[in-house]
Design a protein around this nucleic acid. Sequence first.
DNA 1: ATTTAGCACTCTAATGATGAGAGTGCTAAT
DNA 2: ATTAGCACTCTCATCATTAGAGTGCTAAAT
Lengths: 346, 346
Amino acid sequence: MLDERSKQILYAVTQSYINKPDPVGSRYVTKKFDFSLSSATIRNIMADLEELGFLSQPHTSAGRIPTDMAYRFYVDMLMNQSSFDFDTHIADEIKRRLDRIKNDINGFFKEVSATLSNLSSYMSIAQPPKALNSTFKKIELIKYKEGSIAAVLLTKENIIKSKILQIDPFLTQKDLNRIADFLNSEYEGFTIDEIRSVLLQRLKSEKAAWYQLLTKAMAIYEQILFFAENEIFIEGLYDVINLPDFADISKMKEIYRAIKDKDLLLKIIEDLRESEGVQVIIGCENPIQELNKFSIVASSYKSCGKKMGVIAIIGPTRMDYLKAISMVDLVSRCVCEILQNVDSEY
Amino acid sequence: MLDERSKQILYAVTQSYINKPDPVGSRYVTKKFDFSLSSATIRNIMADLEELGFLSQPHTSAGRIPTDMAYRFYVDMLMNQSSFDFDTHIADEIKRRLDRIKNDINGFFKEVSATLSNLSSYMSIAQPPKALNSTFKKIELIKYKEGSIAAVLLTKENIIKSKILQIDPFLTQKDLNRIADFLNSEYEGFTIDEIRSVLLQRLKSEKAAWYQLLTKAMAIYEQILFFAENEIFIEGLYDVINLPDFADISKMKEIYRAIKDKDLLLKIIEDLRESEGVQVIIGCENPIQELNKFSIVASSYKSCGKKMGVIAIIGPTRMDYLKAISMVDLVSRCVCEILQNVDSEY
DNA sequence: ATTTAGCACTCTAATGATGAGAGTGCTAAT
DNA sequence: ATTAGCACTCTCATCATTAGAGTGCTAAAT
C-alpha cells in the first residue's frame, strides 16, 4: 500500500519532527535528506501521505506533522530493523547503582524509576512486585499492645511487609506463635493470594480440632491482605515539563490530570504485565482517554520466574522512541538480572 | 507609625486582593468599603502606604497590590483578633476519617496531608514522625535467608519499621533471639537515637561476657538506623496549579522547582518543629530562595508528649490566610488528639 | 508517465497605530 | 484636612499591514 519511497519519506519526516518539533515542509526534506527529488515531488507524496492519515497540517500553509499513525509506522520500523545496541558500560553502571538497594524492594523500584527517567529524560513509572502475587515464605506475629499485634510477612521475592493489626485481646504471644507456625509450615511456596482461598476451603471442610486455629489465622490473614498494594513510583515530572511539547499551560495541566490518579496508570500497566518484551502504546492507541496525548514505552520484569510488574516511560507522542525503547529494554534487563540473583541467593 | 485609618485601609486592600487578584484602586475601595472618604483621600493614603512598603503598583496607572509586608501585617492582625472558630462538625468528620487508619502511620499522614489539602484547596505537606526521635518499644529479628534477616522495629508511637538486613551468615535464630531479647529488656523507653550512643558507650566500658553480644547487636542496630527517614507527603499539587496565581508557565514551573526536592521542604519543616501553635511564613520571609514566592502555614504535632513532626499548607503569598490558618490549626488538633488516644491505649 | 519549475494563494506571526478604560498625581477649591 | 477636577500614563484589545513559509495546481520538461 505504501511504496518504498513513500515509506522513506514518511520515516524522514517523522524523524525530523522528533528531532525538532517544527512542522516539516517539502523544501526542508529536500535539503536535509538526499532523495534526489524536487520539493514539488516531495510535496505530492506528502499530500498523499496526508490523505492516507499519516501526516497532518496545523494549517494550510504550514509544513506537515506526523500523526499517531506515523509514529506507529516509525516504531514498527524501529522494532523490526534492529535489536538495540547495548552499552555495557551503562548497563554495569545501572546494575551497580541498583544492586546496593536490592534488599529494600520499594527503594529499589523507586531508584529504577529514577534511573529510567534520568536516562531517557522523560517521565517514568515503576511498579514494584505486588505482595499478592508473590510467594509466601514466612510470617511472624508479634504481640505489641493490648489488642494489637505487629504482623510481618516475608516472601521469596525479598518483599517484606509489616503492619499493625487489631486483634482479639485475649490472644497471647503463644497463640500467635501457634498461628504463625501453622501458616509457616503449611503454606511455604504458595502465592500470598492462593493461601487465602486454600484457607477458606479448609475452613469449610475441616470442622475438627484445627477449627479454632484456622478461624483465628484466617481473621489475621484477611487483615494482612489489606496491605496497600497500589504502590507505583513516578519520577521525572520535572524533566518532562521542560519539554517544548508541554510549553503551554493547558498541555501542562494535562500531564497532571494524567498522572494525578495512579489507579489510571495502574490500569494500563496491569494490561501490559503479561506481554513479552518492550511494548509501545502511542497516543490515541491508549484506551484511557486522559493519556491519549502521551506515549508509553513499557516492559514487564520477572522475579522468581514470574512476571511481577512493569516499568515504563511516559512522554509526549513526539518522543525519541529509539532512545526510550532502548532504555526501557536495558533497564528491565538489569532489573531482571538483579532479581534473579536475589532469587538464587538461597 | 500607622494610624488606625491607614491600618483599616491596608487591611481592606489586602482583603480585597486576596478575594480577587486584581490590583485594587482607590475608587474600588470607596465603593466596596464604607470609609466615608473620597477616592482622592484614599489615593493619598495608599500613596503613603506604598512609600512605607506595604503596597506596590504593577505599573503607574494600575491599582495597588499588597506586598509581603502587607500580608505580614494582615496575618498578625488575624492572629491577634481571634482564635479561629471551630466547626465541630468538620472536626468530627476529620477525626473519623483519620481514626480508621491510625495504625498505619504513613497512610495516616498521607491522609492528613490529603485532608488538609482538600479543606484548604492549597497544597499541603505532612511529615510523619521520625523513627529516630521516637521511643523504642520492641525489636524482632527473624532469620530469613542465609546471611540475611528481617528486622522489625516497633515504637511506642505506633511506628513499625521493617527491613531486610545482611548479616554474618553464622548467626542462628537463637543468636538473633538473644540479641533481640537483650535490646528489648534493656532499652524499652529510650529513644531510638539514644540507644545507639548508649550501646556505643557500653561497648567501650564493658569488655567482659557481654562483649560479643554487644558487637553483634551494634552491627545490626547500625543497619536498622539506616531506615529511609526523610519521608514527607505532599498532596494537592493539582489543586494549586489551577489557581490564577499560577496561570503562567513560569510560575507553574516554580512550584515544581520548589517541591522537586523534598529535602528543601524538610529543612524548613525541621526549623518549625519546635515552635508552638500555628506558624506563618510569608514569601520572602522564607530563608529558602526557591520558596520565596510562596507562603507556608504550619503547625507541629505531638505524640507521646513529644513534638514529632509538622503539617503545613503551602500556597501563593496571596493566600486565604484565615482559612489556611484555621484549617492547619484544626487538623493539627485532630492529629494530636488521635495520637494521644493511640498513646493511652496501653 | 513522471518529475519539475513557476506562480498564485493562504495562513501565521510580528509590527505598529489607534482608542477606550482605569487609575494615578497634582492643584485648587471647599 | 478633605475633595473635585483634570491632565497624564499605562495597559489591553483591535485592526491593518507586511514578510515569510509552504502549499496546490498547471504547464513544461524529461
